[in-house]
Design a protein around this nucleic acid. Structure first.
Lengths: 102, 102
DNA sequence: AGTATAGATTGACAAACATCAATATGAAAT
DNA sequence: ATTTCATATTGATGTTTGTCAATCTATACT
């Protein structure tokens, strides 16, 4: 598969699950470590770990390790990439000629 | 599930599959009917139909019926909603107080 | 060294998804 | 009416995903 499609998939998957969007909402008010997130979500620790991996893979979130803890936050750089990609994919290149079936 | 999460899922699923992104790229240069899309993609007709349903459900694409054909195009209104939602979900509300584990 | 704590990994399972062949629907053309 | 063409629906199949219990790893604290 071409890189672009893989990348779109990797990025936008971040927003295709209830728990992941909840996590993003929790991170909107600032950095939180996994244990904090776990308190606010009704999921198990392995499930949280699974979602954090997907969020980090998408680059929408970054983790900062500090001792035992990992502090997660929204990654502005990744968000910019996502916004740019969304723009690119949905841009209408409107100089086109009418192109009908037959 | 709260409506917002369902909606995010419905919208962003549109971009999480190679064939759907390919379809969007094809629609960037203007309206195309399903039979045109089918020529350019290496998938069966039922598979295309399946993807068009998901794209229309996400509101990123609209179909315009004309006789036997359905002409699909990118729906600027839906794109705006997607962009707004992406902005809302990833917005950093930065007046927050440092919130650490213990 | 031993214990506790934060987080990742593994394995299992059910649900959701992408895909196709076959069939159905619905609209034109004959 | 019959046939043809464009698209949708159904049913089956293999793959991916979300979830948890159990286990592992790494760090900190005694």
């Amino acid at each position: 598969m071409e890189l672009k499609y893989k990348e779109a998939e990797r990025i936008f998957k971040a927003f295709c699950d209830e728990n992941r969007v909840r996590i993003l909402e929790l991170l909107q008010t600032g950095e939180k470590c996994a244990c904090n997130l776990l308190e606010d979500l009704e999921i198990s620790q392995p499930t949280l770990s699974h979602h954090m991996r997907i969020l980090c893979d998408s680059n929408i979130v970054v983790g900062r390790k500090e001792g035992k803890w990992i502090h997660y936050s929204i990654n502005d750089e990744g968000v910019k990439v996502a916004k740019r990609m969304l723009g690119e994919i949905t841009e209408i290149k409107s100089l086109s000629v009418k192109n009908c079936c037959k």
